[in-house]
C-alpha cells in the first residue's frame, strides 16, 4: 500500500511547527483584553513575553497584577507575587497551564496532542483532550512575527493578546531569564 496522505491537520501542524522553529527568539511587550460571552470587556492586562527555542519562555505580567510564568522546557514556575506563592510544575506534563511550552517545543509527540487548522494569517490549535479548559488557541502572524494570540475558553470568553515584537538581536537571552529563584518568604507548592 502507499503512505496515506497526511491529513490537513498534520500538514498545518508541520507548517506551524516550522514557522515557530524559525522563530528561535521572540521578545515583545503585550496588551491583553478579555471579553466575556456578551463581548463585554471584563479584564485588561499588560506585560512582556520572551520566547526561546527549545521550550523556554518568560511571561511577565504587570497589570492587572504582577504575575510571572517562567519555563525552561523541563520545569514551570508560576509566581503569584500578591499571594506570595510559587507553584512548580513539570513543563511537559502540564501543557495546558500555558501555551508557551508547546509553542517553543520541538517535541513532535507534544504536538500530536493537538489538531491544527490553517487560517489565512495564522493557525488554530485545538487540544484533543476533551477536559481542556480551552476551546482553541489562535496565532496570527505578520511580517514582524507573532502579532496576536487568542484564547477562547469553554464559556465563550475570549482573551486577546496584542504583541509588539522587537527585532531579534541574534543572540540568546540570558539563561537565568528562564529560571526562577523563589524569594525567601514565599510559599512553595511543588506539584511535580
Amino acid at each position: 500500500d502507499y503512505a496515506s496522505e497526511p491529513s490537513d491537520s498534520e500538514q498545518a501542524s508541520k507548517a506551524l511547527q516550522q514557522q515557530l522553529a524559525d522563530m528561535t527568539r521572540f521578545y515583545a511587550r503585550f496588551e491583553q483584553q478579555v471579553f466575556d460571552m456578551q463581548q463585554q470587556l471584563v479584564q485588561q492586562g499588560e506585560g512582556e513575553l520572551w520566547l526561546q527555542q527549545p521550550g523556554k519562555f518568560r511571561y511577565q505580567m504587570e497589570l492587572p497584577e504582577p504575575i510571572l510564568f517562567v519555563g525552561d522546557g523541563e520545569t514551570l514556575w508560576y509566581y503569584h507575587e500578591l499571594l506570595e506563592q510559587v507553584t512548580i510544575y513539570d513543563a511537559k506534563a502540564e501543557l495546558e497551564r500555558t501555551p508557551f511550552t508547546l509553542l517553543m517545543s520541538n517535541d513532535a509527540s507534544l504536538w500530536q496532542q493537538y489538531r491544527i487548522s490553517q487560517l489565512d494569517d495564522g493557525y488554530r490549535i485545538q487540544s484533543v483532550d476533551p477536559a481542556s479548559p480551552v476551546q482553541y488557541l489562535q496565532l496570527h502572524f505578520t511580517a514582524a512575527g507573532l502579532n496576536i494570540m487568542q484564547v477562547l475558553d469553554l464559556n465563550g470568553q475570549r482573551s486577546i493578546f496584542h504583541f509588539q515584537p522587537q527585532p531579534d538581536v541574534g543572540s540568546d537571552f540570558a539563561t537565568d531569564l528562564f529560571q526562577f529563584q523563589p524569594p525567601a518568604d514565599v510559599d512553595i507548592d511543588d506539584q511535580r
Binding site: Q32, V34, D36, V42, Q43, G45, M61, P64, E65, I67, F69, H80, L83, Q85, T98, P133, V134, V151, D153, N155, Q157, R158, S159, I160
Partner: peptide, 25 residues
Amino acid sequence: VSGSLHWQQQGEDYQARMTNFLGIR
C-alpha cells in the same frame, strides 16, 4: 487555582466571576 475575582453586590443579590491570568473564566 488563582486569578482575579470581581464581585458586584446589589442588596441581597450578587454577581461574581473569577478569571485566570490567561483570561480563562
